[in-house]
Design a protein around this nucleic acid. Structure first.
Lengths: 177, 177
DNA sequence: GAATTATGTCAGTACTATTGACGCAATTTC
DNA sequence: GAAATTGCGTCAATAGTACTGACATAATTC
């Protein structure tokens, strides 16, 4: 089984490199960075019997309280059926509540509970710590570059989703409770 | 079903923001960026009946021809059993060949075939195009910032994996590996 | 010869995702 | 007001990726 079967191609012994005109360096860095970026919350989630899908739902419901199921599906780019089980579990465990839409009573507006907010924060905390550490390694003003780059990596037609968030008033100490 | 059950918590109507001391802006950008970054190759892979796991294996076998199964498991951070099916399919479809290790005949060195190399390039091409476009939006010298940031996002103890690659010499003085 | 190592494989399970179909209630359209 | 559409929930069937634990084989090391 170790030998190639008769029809098999010959082994190529040289590594693919950026000379092929392709940016393997960043492709690979992006893979490693995202792998470790998600590993922090994954560990916490395991304690709850939740997975990465629960995290994403929880995140967006906290970021855009009151969004409807349809809007959530659109942001996550998954199907209704994929969302169903995950959302049900989050509701059953009292992390998220549904309210009937005020304008359209068919809609279900999704809101986090205090419990759901706390979990969202707990999951984001190690990720934020990792980001802060990475930015400290870089120069301070490079933060803007990183944000621009990441935003430019998103499909243009979907970039609107990013800016839905209320407004991330940077310097401000805020008060809208 | 629309009302919360008696014991349910009250809905929180305000969005989580960066004021909570957490960098939601970049957390979310990273999610969107990676989602779209992987969507390009996913479409191509579907034509072959392959998934993202096949892509990762193919990528690393092309990047480090001759790596052993154990090394591959270590880079991917998955289990032997998870790799088994994917690797078998790639071998059966003549994208990858195994050679008996020269020093240690128990080992299987993995190499891409011409077919495997071609597919790896085809998968990387749209990703590289996306990266190039994103970098064009930014300044040229910001490339180094991006690389530094992504590298700093990786767990320090795993950062060694990144530099295993032969040498990604650009203009970079990056000297010491 | 015995222990260890590298790999492959088996069985069972879990999570996330898919497509397609159907039902119900609310809204919109005519 | 009846009909069509929309938003949501749910059912059934399936797939891809991952896990743990166990066991077999061959090669290497002690």
């Amino acid at each position: 089984m170790t030998d190639r079967s008769p029809a098999a191609g010959k082994p190529i012994r040289t590594a693919i490199t950026d000379e092929d005109g392709i940016d393997f360096a960043i492709i690979e860095l992006f893979f490693f960075a995202y792998r470790d970026f998600t590993s922090d919350p994954d560990q916490i989630l395991a304690d709850y019997g939740f997975g990465r899908a629960h995290h994403r739902v929880l995140h967006f419901v906290n970021r855009r309280p009151g969004l409807t199921v349809a809007e959530l599906l659109d942001v996550l780019k998954i199907t209704k059926q994929s969302l169903a089980r995950v959302l049900k579990q989050l509701i059953d465990t009292d992390h998220i509540v549904q309210l009937q839409g005020p304008r359209d009573r068919r809609q279900r507006e999704l809101y986090p509970t205090a419990k759901g907010r706390a979990l969202a924060l707990a999951l984001a905390r190690p990720q934020s710590r990792r980001i802060r550490a990475a930015l400290e390694d870089s120069g301070t003003n490079e933060r803007a570059s990183i944000e621009r780059f990441l935003e430019a990596m998103v499909n243009p037609e979907l970039r609107a989703q990013i800016d839905i968030v209320p407004a991330k008033i940077s310097g401000k100490s805020h008060g809208d409770h």
